[in-house]
Design a protein around this nucleic acid. Sequence first.
DNA 1: TCATGTGGTGTGTGCGCACACACTGAGGGT
DNA 2: ACCCTCAGTGTGTGCGCACACACCACATGA
Lengths: 356, 356
Amino acid sequence: MGGKEEIRIVDIAAMAGVSTGTVDRVIHNRGRVSAENTAKVEKVLREIGYRPNLAARALASNRKEFPIAVIAPSFDGPGYWSKVGEGMARALSELSQYNVAVDLLEFDQYDSGSFPVRIPGEKQYRGFVIATLFRHATEMLSEQLDKAGIPYVYIDSPIEGQNDLAYFGVDAYQSGRVAGKMLLREVGPEAEILVAHIRFGREDISLQMKERLAGISDYLAEHGHRGLTCELELDPDDPGSLETLSQYLSEVEGRAGAVVLNSRIYELAGMLEQVAPELREGVVAAGFEAIAPNVEAMKRGSVGFLISQRPELQGYDAVKALGDFLLHGKRPQKVNFMPIDIIIPENVDYYNNYKL
Amino acid sequence: MGGKEEIRIVDIAAMAGVSTGTVDRVIHNRGRVSAENTAKVEKVLREIGYRPNLAARALASNRKEFPIAVIAPSFDGPGYWSKVGEGMARALSELSQYNVAVDLLEFDQYDSGSFPVRIPGEKQYRGFVIATLFRHATEMLSEQLDKAGIPYVYIDSPIEGQNDLAYFGVDAYQSGRVAGKMLLREVGPEAEILVAHIRFGREDISLQMKERLAGISDYLAEHGHRGLTCELELDPDDPGSLETLSQYLSEVEGRAGAVVLNSRIYELAGMLEQVAPELREGVVAAGFEAIAPNVEAMKRGSVGFLISQRPELQGYDAVKALGDFLLHGKRPQKVNFMPIDIIIPENVDYYNNYKL
DNA sequence: TCATGTGGTGTGTGCGCACACACTGAGGGT
DNA sequence: ACCCTCAGTGTGTGCGCACACACCACATGA
């Protein structure tokens, strides 16, 4: 495991009977090499499977800058995107030996007009990470980048037929199916299952949420459950919503499931904690994303399980893949779905410890 | 995110009014520096928060060798330890820029006498990764290493009160509790739950397996189930075992759970596939570790769920932590439990894709 | 007296690579 | 004949660091 008898550029030059400069030109295909010599060098390269010394490479080319732009919703606050940002920061620290720097160009996830459809001009960005929340805008920007020959990586949801270097994201439909299965196991085939919508202001139901919902519904329908029986709009700041929830719970009497499609199951948990204990007793609340308030609510016993798709890993992989491509020409696998993690009170303690 | 204006040793030397050689001696505290100059340099170092250029460091000290010894069961075959080995190989490839090499010193996991209780003399190993399957032997070796001042990290199960640099491993008891919960949800409180022992030759039940069993039992007992109702010794190569299994299944009629405590649930799955369909219909088989044959059995529908504790990550982290400590003096967190992953047919496809 | 340490200090070299630069010789324009 | 261009080639330098080595002053012993 892990021997050491590295072949250097000088060795290759000697083997091919040329100078190191020529080898260098071939390796980085900068041209200005005769077809004959190119062939000779490439032959040697292939035969020995040359692996450059990355330390030396980094040292020698440390004047080069690699600014990367990330186009995504704000990383502020305790939400999903902040986790993506954590992963990016970690990737960046691993790349910190090289001159990679990341600029976050925020857009408003509730306003497609805030998404930049032209290449931002501030810097000469060498690569982009793009959150694909707005499909059309993403496609327009991608077209610009294609023309300019700048590589870009997608995160969040996939878009078919694009020239993205790679995609890292989640399969929202499948994570919905997982949630459906767990929910069915928790509450049984007879129980009511409620979809609670907890929104901010003008916020609309997103594509991801629709897919999750479809996944849950399909799973339930395929397994002898009569499906999601009720949808409620709830506002944690509105006492009327608490009333609505109590009302509903008293009607269903007995076991029930409740699911929130965005990452704000903790709000529903908070509301459940305020209704009469006998009403909430048989209720299993299920949500998405292992963000801090959700985990806390689970530890208080108010959330039954969470489904998470490793947002940190998504951010980490996206930046890492782009960096490795830019620095070392390493091509990543094109489509990468995150694992779908099931988090229950019994395993939550060992989940968030881990940075991946 | 990720700026760049690094301060070099020459800069520090200038600031402190000494030569680079002196700064170097202080940084690596090799002595031979006057108290006065030591103080001056350390002051500057502290004030600017010096971060060495790792690429240059790696390049300059590339003659130094860092042989690491891994003391663990054989990585051969499709089992648990091969996954640990995969993770180690990945960590090694990330460290390959530095002269880290790993030797696997195998022992027989069924024979404590095969565990080396003295420091192996072949090479001057700079660090050890030790699988703590044999507690006493591990403690003896650790004592030797303490005396010699060689760092070591533990994997597998923790041992309290030792001077290990770090521990990476699993909480077998807790993973048993998770299995217990899932099983109870799958089969319901009335169902029989069988523990099937599938052994090789003289193989004994291990400590980890005992803990898993305790976790399952405790969970069931605490949640109104009458507990593990039957233990069977099964040998997949013995037709009599198939008979025993059929017999058992015809007695329990209806839903039942079956759990295998080691990683060989696939053997039970294979046997189930051979009994009459009506007998196995309501049976949910539960096992541990997402090794290839188990995943295949799950995809065939013969395994209900698997619990995995990321063996690759264990191996990866252990080698990475040791390497980072040796190369960069970075101290890892001392105790690190792996996440407990729940794998079901609905999420298995996205699980093994991922290298972590 | 000279040789021989011995704490303390500075300088020089090279790790493997990227890249600027210098050089060559063939071809074309004048 | 001259100069110029330009594809193709080789050489030299420096990235930041670790470490061998040279050096100095002063002490110690013979």
